[in-house]
Write a protein that binds this DNA or RNA. Structure first.
Length: 555
RNA sequence: GGGCCGGUAGCUCAGUUAGGCAGAGCGUCUGGCUUUUAACCAGACGGUCAUGGGUUCAAUUCCCAUCCGGCCCGCCA
């Protein structure tokens, strides 16, 4: 097969060759069609994978979530699906990340762990490097555990497969032997993509028995015996040189790894992969060569590919090594899992910014999406069709009776520590129907914690802080001062929040001043902000002496 | 330098695979609601669909060129 028969990885924009007449509102349906057209045997295998080289961040979850939606669609169609995720943990550590994370997902500076010990392991497989936190069997296992817990947190069942384990168990042995026996073909194909591939190139990198580094210099190959001889030479890694130890030895096919361009197709064969999503970094490099290697070296059909665009985080590229990351666990302190899944259900072709600052916008979008599904709001034909198709895949359970507090409202409710007070205010504002059962109300109020975390984290205008200790520095004109004094007298008489709220309006009118100005003065005095929660209700909840004194600007 | 992906309202995004009046939400503005402030209702404003050409009765959509952002083309994954 020639190169022009190669598969474009841009599956979502390819022409539909079947002339399939239904247009899909959900990209995962389109992919599922592609997979089904090949009539694969069950179970259908969907793969993702990353190197456990450092903190697995929110953007990495594309590898899990994109596959998840395709799996869900295929399951809906009656297929058995396995979602496999390879931890590419035999890859060598090439450079030290500046930030690591403990098993709780807390970021840690390299300097706070034993950086020196880590530095001595450059060039060795992640699974052969001690865990810098000392809690797992290896560096690789540590970060694999984080990948697993991230997938768990999103409710996606993945079968995590350790690449190292696959090598050790001999799963790659046959395909490795085949590649070594057919090294000429392998070289010829890969040379189309990589200039460095010459007559001496060997598609296998043994691990040095002496220093443990992945080596690149193979001096003899005996495929039948399942052995290679090697010399441990220097390795180039990102401009730096990792020194080899010079050891000359012999390795079995289980004691090394395939170079990535062969390892990927080998994984497809060994795991029987039918579909794999991957980031755009692979689209023009490893995919074309992998596709070619699979077809023309191994004689396999490569999986259905799908390129996804990368996310940015608050406008900047995610960077594990530099610590510009957010982990799934962090995100789930701010968003419900269904909102996170909703984000990943959007078109993979589009580069998106995951904006922590504007998470309220994402949540509002989700809430509307949900209302569209339940027919509670009007939308365009496309919006409605999309909501009807996608919503069930995004939530664990379709619940028409759920209550969603508007996110920013929930953030403001967060200033009350007392759960009863939160509920009371939410009811008063009409966000909780009278007939809602206890469980539903509790579920609705769960958003308050997340919204509160968001307000705190971004320290935005919803992060209200009562300035109790000290009176904010505020300039007031005499008319406002009079009004505040009158209001103080009213509060001192003992009235509830509703009455105080009404009195603010009355007082402003009586003093012939702008209502907004009086509210602003109030917010200034209590929050040092221009706006805030419904003032009367809020003041009604505070201790009366303090409120009276503050309105009189006494303390 | 070559290839690829993306660019749609102030913001967040649908729509582009198959050419047929430019869309939604939020925000903004105006008005209303006997209490605008964390609302609700009604309406308005908001666009050279990145730019310039071409094909076409008709182009956001197809073709060519250009600009911007990102990725790949060394190594590695």
């Amino acid at each position: 097969m020639s190169a022009d028969e190669a598969t474009s990885p841009y599956t979502l924009q390819a022409d539909d060759e079947d002339g399939d007449e239904h247009r899909h509102v959900f990209w995962a349906d389109r992919i599922a069609d592609e997979i089904a057209a090949r009539e694969p045997d069950d179970p259908i295998v969907i793969k993702g994978g990353i190197s456990p080289s450092g903190v697995p961040h929110f953007g990495n979850m594309n590898e899990v979530m994109r596959g998840y939606f395709v799996a869900a669609v295929l399951r809906e169609r009656g297929h058995e699906v396995r979602q496999v995720f390879t931890a590419d943990d035999r890859d060598p550590l090439r450079k030290l990340p500046r930030k690591l994370a403990n098993l709780d997902g807390e970021l840690v500076d390299l300097g706070d762990v034993n950086a020196g010990a880590l530095g001595r392991n450059l060039g060795r497989p992640y699974t052969d490097i001690p865990d810098p936190f000392g809690c797992c069997d290896s560096y690789g296992d540590h970060f694999s555990a984080l990948i697993q817990s991230s997938a768990d947190a999103l409710g996606v069942p993945i079968e995590l497969a350790s690449n190292t384990r696959l090598y050790e168990d001999g799963e790659f042995e046959d395909v490795t032997r085949f590649l070594l026996a057919n090294a000429d073909t392998a070289r010829r194909v890969l040379a189309k993509y990589q200039d460095k591939v010459d007559a001496d190139y060997v598609p296998f990198n043994p691990i040095c028995a002496d220093c443990g580094k992945v080596t690149e210099t193979v001096t003899a190959v005996r495929p039948e015996a399942g052995e290679v001889d090697y010399e441990c030479t220097d390795m180039e890694a990102g401009g730096d040189t990792i020194a080899g130890c010079g050891h000359e030895g012999t390795a079995t096919l289980r004691e090394g790894k395939l170079p990535w361009r062969f390892e990927w197709p080998a994984q497809w064969r060994v795991l029987g992969v039918d579909f794999e999503p991957f980031g755009k970094d692979h689209a023009e490099g490893s995919w074309p060569s992998g596709d070619d290697v699979a077809r023309n070296v191994l004689g396999d059909t490569p999986p259905v590919p799908m390129v996804y665009e990368w996310f940015t985080l608050d406008g900047k590229a995610f960077s594990s090594s530099e610590g510009h990351v957010v982990l799934v666990e962090d995100v789930l302190e701010l968003l419900e899992p269904e909102v996170v899944r909703f984000f990943f259900a959007k078109n993979p072709k589009r580069a998106r910014d995951f904006s922590i600052e504007r998470l309220d916008q994402l949540v509002d979008e989700f809430d509307r999406f949900e209302q569209l599904y339940f027919g509670e709001v009007e939308g365009t034909e496309d919006e409605t069709a999309r909501a009807e198709r996608v919503y069930p895949f995004v939530v664990d359970e379709v619940g028409p009776d759920r209550i969603r507090l508007p996110f920013t409202f929930a953030a403001v409710l967060g200033m009350f520590d007392d759960p009863d007070l939160r509920e009371q205010v939410a009811r008063k504002e009409g966000h909780i129907p009278d007939d809602a059962d206890e469980e539903t109300v509790e579920a609705a109020l769960a958003r308050v914690e997340r919204a509160r975390n968001w307000a705190r984290r971004t320290d935005n205008e919803f992060n209200y802080e009562l300035k109790r200790a000290e009176i904010p520095d505020v300039d007031l004109d005499p008319a406002t001062e009079d009004a505040l004094d009158e209001l103080a007298d009213f509060v001192a008489e003992g009235h509830d929040g509703d009455a105080i709220q009404g009195q603010i309006y009355e007082t402003a009118k009586r003093n012939d001043m702008d209502i907004g100005a009086l509210f602003t003065a109030g917010y200034r005095l209590f929050f040092d902000e221009e706006q805030g929660p419904q003032l009367g209700t809020f003041l009604g909840k505070l201790d009366r002496d303090f409120v009276v004194a503050r309105l009189r600007r006494e303390r």
